[in-house]
Amino acid sequence: MNLRPGRSPILRPAISVFVLLAALTGIVYPLAVTGVAQVLFPTQANGSLLSQDGKIVGSELIGQNFSDPKNFWGRLSATAPMPYNAAASSGSNFGPLNPALTEAAKVRLDRLKAADPENALPVPVDLVTASASGLDPHISAAAAYYQAARVARLRGVPLAHVEALIAQRVETPLWGVLGEPRVNVLKLNLALARLDA
């Protein structure tokens, strides 16, 4: 029995337990994980980088900004100062009633319409909203098909060809429940670039 703190030492065990556990969890553990990860999963541990023609063209997991109508466009990005800034991830944090939210959606809708006036398909909502990270590499399958006609026309390739490219790259939900039907925009545009070459 010992209710009085004076009788059981506190400071020495506190300091030594803290130093010991800090060294274990703050140095040994992260370095051990780094070591094992670099052996087991070197590609993933270093950023899942993509290369084309021997050149690194980005990361499979990190979206890039696309505004050329000949390419597929991704989600809106609210990172600063430039969109898709992978050294400063951020969402817009606009509330549902914020006029800036509807303004950003309107600008995107106008650009989509201007680049493809004939398109009568409904515009998928993910094409007019900003992602949480500002780095979303994907768009919904619907958003890719929505843009297919524009890309095909401007690149002078048959629509069926572009749609086939999309269909090959649609990632479906894992086991039917995990995730949403989606397409990686950078990979899709890289495939388009290969088409030109």
Partner: peptide, 22 residues
């Protein structure tokens, strides 16, 4: 404004502001 928020086999729809597609 004309954005389509319907859930379908090709998109999750809904309130996608501040959400990731995956």
């Amino acid at each position: 404004l004309g954005a389509d928020p319907q859930f379908s086999a090709a998109q999750s729809g809904g309130n996608m502001e501040g959400k990731e597609t995956r």
